[in-house]
């Protein structure tokens, strides 16, 4: 194929512009997300059914009930935030200890062969559809919890926060563990060797040398896992119930921000209705929470000491 030099140069420029345009699409997507959330949240707060601005905004942060879909509308966001964080905390109780165990084992102890066999399975765990985890939480974990706890006189409801919390904990585990492992990998070998040469055991080296050196990476991994647990939707939609309330009891039904969005989206709502707009206000809250967590995680990672 012979083209003139001019034609070749023109193709070069055109290709460059095309590639840059496609690269910029991601920026448009971010702007679109922020724009949609902001515009529809503003429409929610100026909607007459919520009392209009600024009354609705005050009600949003001061009321203790969340019932925008009822006749008697209460729009306090805290029950949903409470449910969201309750689930996320339970999941971290599972993911924090197990995550560090798995990561230390894989990065400091396991042979190359074990690591190469385990890693694809961890990758695969990340691809298990979340609705499958939801099924598992509702129809496998909850019955087991009921069987174990009810002989002790502790009533466990069919919908509760504990079972999806545990399942989400295991769900985010591969993701957290592999990020912690990456942080460990960033610790230079000579630190380990210095520790060994002083007579320290593997365990001592792992916990007192490698872990402190990778501290900010580990923290950032946990924060990203936490943020993922907060944004998790299907497990809670299936197994946590639809009852927004302020409670610390993990054995009662609750509702998370994501669960509420699913509940409303399953119904058929007109574009301008108060109920429809309420999912954008709730989604905006979710977006802000995860954005803050992710930003702290990114900041921590950037602070990681370069050796």
């Amino acid at each position: 194929m012979t083209l003139s030099l001019g034609a070749k140069k023109a193709i070069d420029v055109a290709l460059f512009l095309f590639l840059m345009l496609m690269g910029a699409v991601s920026v448009f997507v971010t702007f679109a997300i922020v724009w949609v959330l902001v515009v529809d949240t503003v429409r929610f707060f100026t909607h007459p059914e919520g009392g209009g601005f600024p009354i609705s905004l005050i009600r949003f942060f001061t009321e203790t009930q969340w019932t925008p879909t009822f006749y008697n509308k209460q729009i306090g966001i805290w029950p949903l935030v409470n449910g969201t964080f309750l689930i996320a905390f339970i999941s971290m109780l599972v993911a924090v200890p197990l995550g560090i165990l798995v990561a230390v084992y894989l990065s400091e102890y396991a042979s190359w062969k074990v690591r190469e066999t385990v890693k694809p399975w961890l990758d695969f765990l990340e691809a298990v559809p979340t609705v499958v985890y939801g099924y598992f939480a509702l129809l496998f974990v909850t019955p087991i919890l009921q069987k174990v706890l009810e002989p002790f006189g502790i009533p466990v409801e069919g919908m509760n926060a504990l079972s999806p919390g545990i399942v989400i904990g295991v769900m985010i585990l591969p993701y957290t563990a592999s990020m912690i492992e990456d942080a460990f990998k960033g610790v230079p070998q000579y630190l380990r060797e210095a520790s060994y040469s002083l007579g320290a055991s593997k365990l001592r080296t792992a916990l007192l040398v490698v872990l402190p050196a990778a501290k900010s990476g580990v923290l950032s991994a946990y924060l990203l896992g936490f943020s993922r647990a907060i944004g998790e939707t299907m497990v809670v939609a299936v197994a946590a119930g639809m009852y927004p309330q302020i409670t610390a009891n993990p054995l009662e039904p609750i509702q998370t921000i994501t669960g509420y969005i699913v509940q409303v989206a399953l119904g058929d709502l007109p574009f301008n209705s108060f109920e429809y707009l309420s999912i954008f206000a709730a989604g905006f809250m979710l977006f802000i929470i995860t954005l803050i967590l992710n930003s702290i995680a990114v900041y921590l990672k950037s602070k990681a000491v370069g050796y």
């Binding site: 690269g23 971010t30 949609v36 959330l37 944004g231 939707t233 969005i261 699913v262 995860t290």
Partner: peptide
């Protein structure tokens, strides 16, 4: 420009998937 796009993409990767649903509902559907 490349740095902005790069930071953007790593941010997008951490956005909960349901927020993409809200984006699509607000922009594509309505």
């Amino acid at each position: 420009i490349a740095r902005i796009i790069e930071a953007n993409i790593s941010n997008l990767a951490a956005v909960p998937s349901i927020v993409y649903g809200l984006l699509a509902l607000g922009v594509f559907v309505y």
